[in-house]
Design a binder for these strands. Structure first.
Length: 969
RNA sequence: GCCGCGAUGGCGGAAUUGGUAGACGCACGGGACUCAAAAUCCCGCGAUCGCAAGGUCAUGAGAGUUCGAUUCUCUCUCGCGGCACCA
């Protein structure tokens, strides 16, 4: 293929494939399906970015391989076309968003087609098409007409709501006055997920808080299931972690504090520190505070009011700034009672307590919480340390308790940490002398050697006898962060060998001190530790364990977490509780270019859904759709659209004027692909049963807590409601992967302002689609960010030209299949077969390059390999593979021609290089038969390495089959 | 601070049940072909010592386990991504 005609060849095949419907998914097929999905693009005015094809080519290659393997493949494409950028672009250029969208889609289509993706274009969808958004609106009505059944843990139709409950208070979609994130630049309300860090996701402007009635969807009801069901899917670990983190589950308890006649409920994850709660802090916005201000319970009303006003005026960023000093005001005249010990404690308000999380109030335990501690220090509030006496409740392990010095529990992960306090230089030291840069384990080994005089100190797998224990720790104790609990044991019976071993908790044990010494350490240790912390007033540790009862006098006592919860339960002062950071989904947008929310407000009937037979509720065609500062949707100005009759009573009513966020259309598009032209349902259940779930879904990490979370939730809702059949399973995507960003040549982010953006059109024009595709797959690991490299693309061009020339050199392909080439060929088929499945495209290409180089050395492609090699190349360079395929005189498209197989027998070469190591160093390499016996291998190895052994008798000879011989001399 | 990921030649990166570190590509150097250039092909290409044969060092730093560690364990440093006063 000369440089001149590749575009022609590519265009030819693109046309032919479409005409022949090569990539069309079949609906009522008997064979196995494979549903590969890429995030459908937002057709922006800028056109395709080189990042898009990275993801698309990857999934294209996977689906092409699946198709060649005989699967019925669905690899669809569509447009997520509603949204702000188009609307803003349209306003700026004084055209209609409809027109801008149409133009952009046409451009994207041209670009995507020029790269030769195997999309099934017959299933193309567009979220702005009324035949599509009709169903988005229909689904919104389902949310509106349903509630969440807490007992059954699923959504159900609103008609089934128990009669004593108010429907409007339980709908899955509900309108409520709420504080929203308002972006003054975009003039739009944002969901929490879109205003992370108090900054607008779109424009980067700081957001403000505004009170506004918004449509919300109760995604929070699904928090637990959204976490739990991650167990059943194959997502990248970092995606799972990010979602779990975002949902932010915390387990703990609600605890009631009496404040006069009122009860303030706090949420805490540490009910076991309740004895150390020395004051209460409430969010300034807390309704009770509001009431107390109004009814005069608070003496310093003015001060409180002004603090409240100050808080309200702060932006999210200011309020979230941790570096600033804690502020707050005491509510004078108000006192709370600590339910654990009956003590009267003060009540404060402070902006470090968030109104939107937990109960909006906390109990402050300054001895064991850093933030409370800072606050207490600043305002001179009391700090009480909570201590667990070791002589109290027996622990699981008697031995463990007997000689421990002190235990600190890491608050973040609950791990136990044993510590020792010594007087070395007045600072905390560990293990008796952890040297700089030394880890506790190493230290332990060293010390055991020194103390016992035994050289041979070994770790063994499991402890049989645990005699005595000693401490260990890490220097991080001082900071109370991560630490390793190390315990050592030296068995009495085995005096000739000190043994280090791991017990079930993963801790190492060894005897180290006499019991008397250990006893002393215990007492000194805890005293020293707690005493110092107490004096310094810097204790925000976990409860310590004390054996010295004198010391315990005057310190608050301790109950384990679960014990405390049951005690609270018995006393009626609290209960077990779980909270989440996740908030309900703000579903209203005050903009034009979105799906109108199909609700009618009737003064008599309240909120009424638009009757299903009136869907789609069309977006009116208007001239003025600029956003307004008032926060009203532009639709509100179109009176003839707004004014309707109530479908219920026929009286005068008004339409809802908010539109949906663009996450609406993308929350269910993968379902529509299964049946894109259905006008009776969003998709035929039978087709859903066949196609769902998506086998492989690839998309950007930036959607992890947005689209990916929303669509999982949306899908679960449809599944609960029976709209998605039971058989499809509770998760929409069986496997989710994410591609790395493509950076600009210098390693920076590509951006228009820096002028370093690579345009796919230019690359395709200069090198052709195949080179572009192969390069994108070769440039680096798929999930890793990689910089664009113009020289690198040249290398790929050479590779493809080499292949082209190999097939075209002379018409007589010689049958020169020497044994090495056969082995390499089979290895390559295996590598590419496995590599595509594991999304390791870069090494697939490398391996094909190796084989191509070997073909070149051999003079040509052997007859027996010419089809197979072309086939494994086809997913990456579909045009060239097809063209050569035709030249070879093959019938039909290569892309449905079957996937080549490899012979496992032929993966191994007849001989291999046996590596000979002496004392761990490579000393010789000898070529031996693959089926060499162990004895022969060893003797040959000894022979070849005789120089290094010098007549000594080897202590040990290790043979690794097919690899090496290691001689210990 | 928390969660997750990462660190290997001049560059992108290979190498997983622990077994030849640097595959493949780029860049660079040399050669062939050519009047010349481009293209193509061949050879070399981690550092260091050595004429060479060969040796020594080397996968962010330090330690450990092992006959053997890029790979496992621990401590630390730096970088990237996400979250962040979430009780």
């Amino acid at each position: 293929m000369s440089k001149r005609d590749f575009r022609g060849v590519e265009a030819k095949w693109q046309k032919k494939w479409e005409e022949d419907g090569v990539y069309q998914a079949k609906d009522h097929a008997k064979n196995e399906k494979f549903y590969g999905l890429i995030e459908f693009p937002y057709p922006s005015g800028e056109g395709l970015h080189v990042g898009h094809p990275r993801s698309y080519t990857a999934i294209d290659a996977v689906t092409r391989k699946q198709r060649m393997s005989g699967k019925n493949v669905l690899f669809p494409i569509g447009w997520d076309a509603f949204g702000l950028p188009t609307e803003n672009f349209a306003i700026k250029n004084k055209i209609k968003p409809q027109e801008a969208t149409k133009k952009n889609i046409a451009n994207f289509t041209r670009q995507l087609k020029s790269i030769g993706f195997g999309f099934d274009w017959s299933r193309e969808i567009d979220t702005t098409d009324p035949t599509y958004y009709k169903w988005t609106q229909w689904q919104f009505l389902k949310f509106f007409n349903s509630f969440y059944d807490e007992q059954e843990q699923r959504a159900r139709p609103i008609e089934e709501l128990p009669a004593h409950l108010d429907k409007d208070e339980h709908r899955m979609a509900y309108k409520a006055a709420s504080t929203i994130n308002w972006c003054p630049r975009c003039k739009i309300g944002l969901a929490n997920e879109e205003a992370i860090g108090g900054v607008c996701e779109r424009c980067g402007n700081p957001t403000e808080k505004r009170e506004k009635a918004q449509w919300m969807i109760r995604i929070t009801k699904y928090a637990e299931r959204l976490i739990k069901d991650l167990d059943s899917v194959d997502y990248l670990d970092k995606i799972k972690a990010q979602q779990i983190n975002w949902i932010g589950k915390s387990e703990g308890a609600f605890v009631d504090f009496q404040v006069g006649k009122d009860t303030v409920t706090v949420f805490t994850t540490r009910p076991d520190t309740l004895f150390g709660a020395t004051y209460l802090v409430m969010a300034p916005e807390h309704p009770l505070v509001q009431r107390w201000v109004e009814d005069g319970s608070i003496m310093n009303q003015d001060e409180v009011r002004s603090y409240q006003a100050e808080t309200a005026s702060k932006s999210e960023i200011e309020r979230g700034d941790e570096s600033k000093d804690k502020t707050g005001v005491e509510l004078k005249g108000v006192q709370a009672v600590n339910p654990a010990n009956g003590e009267k404690i003060p009540v404060w308000i402070s902006d470090y307590v968030l109104a939107t999380y937990g109960t909006g109030s906390i109990m402050a335990v300054p001895a064991h919480d850093e933030r409370d501690h800072a606050f207490a220090k600043k305002f001179g509030l009391p700090i009480d340390i909570v201590v667990e006496p070791v002589t109290g409740e027996p622990r699981e392990n008697e031995e463990f308790r007997r000689s421990i010095v002190a235990i600190v529990r890491n608050p973040k992960n609950g791990k136990l940490l044993s510590i020792n306090w010594g007087k070395k230089g007045g600072s905390l030291f560990v293990g008796g002398g952890l040297e700089d840069g030394e880890d506790p384990e190493t230290c332990a080994v060293r010390e055991i050697r020194e103390e016992t005089g035994y050289k041979n100190v070994k770790f063994i797998e499991k402890s049989e006898t645990v005699h005595h224990h000693y401490f260990a720790a890490s220097k991080n104790v001082a900071r109370n962060i991560e630490a390793v609990g190390l315990l050592f044991e030296l068995s009495d019976e085995e005096r000739d060998e000190a043994v280090l071993e791991k017990d079930e908790q993963g801790q190492f044990t060894v005897e180290w001190l006499t019991e008397a010494q250990a006893e002393k350490q215990v007492i000194d240790g805890l005293h020293g530790y707690l005493f110092q912390k107490f004096i310094q007033g810097t204790c925000y540790s976990e409860p310590g364990i004390a054996t010295n009862s004198d010391f315990l006098d005057g310190l608050p006592t301790w109950k384990a977490k679960d014990d405390m919860i049951s005690w609270l339960n018995e006393q009626g002062k609290g209960e077990k509780a779980t909270t989440y950071k996740l908030r309900d989904w703000v579903f209203s947008r005050q903009r034009y270019w979105g799906e109108p929310i199909p609700i009618i407000h009737c003064p008599k009937c309240g909120q009424v859904g638009v009757p299903e037979n009136e869907l789609p509720l069309m977006l009116p065609d208007v001239d003025a759709y600029q956003p307004t500062d008032s926060g009203e949707s532009p639709l509100a100005a179109i009176r003839e659209w707004v004014e309707v009759k109530c479908p219920n009573c026929g009286g005068k009513a008004e339409r809802e004027t908010d539109t949906m966020p663009n996450w609406a259309g993308s929350s269910w598009y993968f379902l529509r692909y299964c049946d894109p032209h259905n006008d009776k349902a969003l998709a035929d259940p039978e087709k859903l049963k066949y196609w769902m779930p998506v086998n492989l879904y690839n998309g950007g990490m930036e959607h992890t807590t947005l689209h990916l979370l929303y669509s999982r939730f949306w899908y679960k809702f449809l599944w609960d409601m029976g709209i998605v059949p039971e058989e499809c399973g509770s998760e929409p995507y069986a496997k989710r992967r994410s591609h790395g960003l493509i950076l600009a040549e210098g390693g920076e982010k590509m951006s228009k302002s820096k002028g370093n953006v690579v345009n796919p059109d230019d690359v395709v024009e200069a090198y052709g689609a195949d080179v572009f595709r192969v390069y994108e797959m070769f440039m680096g690991p798929f999930d890793q960010p990689v910089p664009w490299d113009t020289n690198g693309i040249e290398g790929v061009r050479k590779f493809l030209e080499k292949v082209w020339n190999l097939y075209g050199l002379d018409s007589s392909l010689r049958g020169n299949d020497n044994p090495e080439l056969v082995t390499l060929y089979h290895q390559t088929i295996k590598k590419v077969t496995d590599g595509i499945d594991h999304l390791q495209f870069n090494t697939c290409i490398s391996q094909m390059m190796i084989l191509a180089n070997a073909f070149q050395d051999a003079g040509s492609v052997p007859e027996s390999m010419k089809e197979g090699f072309l086939k494994i190349l086809a997913p990456f360079a579909p045009h060239m593979a097809e063209e050569i395929w035709e030249h070879l005189g093959m019938k039909g498209s290569i892309h449905v021609s079957g996937w080549p197989t490899y012979d496992p027998e032929k993966l191994k070469a007849a001989t291999f290089e046996l590596v000979v190591q002496v004392n761990g160093k490579v000393r010789a390499k000898i070529t031996v038969d693959s089926d060499i016996s162990e004895e022969d291998a060893k003797s040959k190895a000894l022979e070849s390495a005789s120089k290094w052994i010098e007549g000594k008798t080897p202590k040990q000879i290790i043979y690794v089959t097919g690899k090496l011989v290691s001689i210990v001399a």
